[in-house]
Computed example of a mutant assay.
Amino acid sequence: MKFSAPLVSGRLVKRYKRFLADVLLDDGGAITAHCANPGSMLGLKEPGSRVWLSQSDNPKRKLKYSWEVIEADGALVGINTAHPNKLVEEALEAGRIEGLTGYDSLRREVKYGKNSRIDILLERSEGARTYVEVKNVHLMRQPGLAEFPDSVTARGAKHLAELADMVAEGHRAAMVFLVQRPDCDRISLAGDIDPAYAAAFEAARAAGVEAYAIGCDVRLDGIDAVKAVTIAID
């Protein structure tokens, strides 16, 4: 995934109300950017951190800038949760997620379950289906270990139950964790942050839901999901 234009750099002043971030640009301007991330962003919102923003030329947008990348722990980390589905789609089409290859078609945002939409539906010509839910990951509390989630996610637990329902109906279902940082080679669950999600994940795995993880090469001109990440979950 390439950014459509060069990113604008600055320093984070504060992130607040979940979806807003005040940034002091390198040219001296002070702006408020959209933060497309509903999580806590633990460890990724320190005032003074170097950040990079995309800029929209849409005159109807209230906020001209969107926060894309932050420098944290010596690495570039992608924080925009609008990108993971696209990144995983590109990885699937390139055959980078072993175990999820050989499909004839890929569709996004398909209705299923209890008034939900699956992130990605993989289909084969003979009718076989695999339901793929994508989760963005960028929490790192131990070097090299990514963790999910970074805040309580009742919605995430609901998605796991719906994936298990698809398995019960005879389909394949998979959770793909997209790690938007290059400095992690393992991923685990942050059970201390959301024990209910950890329990739901265990139940889903027992029901036959598969789990995969892929890490990202994060650059200032784009982000690509290319790196194998080991799932370190018992």
Rank of each mutant, 00 (worst) to 15 (best):
K114H: 12
N115T: 08
N115P: 04
S116C: 11
S116G: 04
S116Y: 03
R117N: 09
I118G: 01
I118R: 06
D119H: 11
D119Y: 06
D119F: 04
D119E: 08
I120S: 11
I120N: 00
I120W: 11
I120H: 02
I120R: 00
L121T: 07
L121A: 10
E123F: 07
E123V: 11
E123T: 15
E123G: 09
R124P: 07
S125M: 14
S125D: 01
S125A: 14
E126N: 13
E126Q: 14
G127T: 06
R129D: 05
R129N: 05
R129S: 08
R129V: 05
T130V: 12
Y131I: 03
Y131R: 04
Y131H: 13
V132R: 00
V132I: 12
V132D: 09
V132E: 00
E133R: 06
V134C: 08
V134E: 01
K135G: 01
N136R: 13
N136C: 11
V137R: 02
V137N: 00
V137M: 05
H138W: 04
H138F: 15
H138K: 12
L139R: 15
L139E: 11
M140S: 12
M140K: 14
R141I: 08
R141E: 08
R141S: 10
R141P: 02
R141V: 03
Q142G: 01
Q142D: 07
P143E: 13
P143N: 09
G144C: 07
L145F: 13
L145A: 05
L145C: 02
L145M: 15
A146G: 15
A146V: 10
E147G: 00
E147A: 05
E147N: 03
F148E: 00
F148C: 01
P149V: 11
P149Q: 10
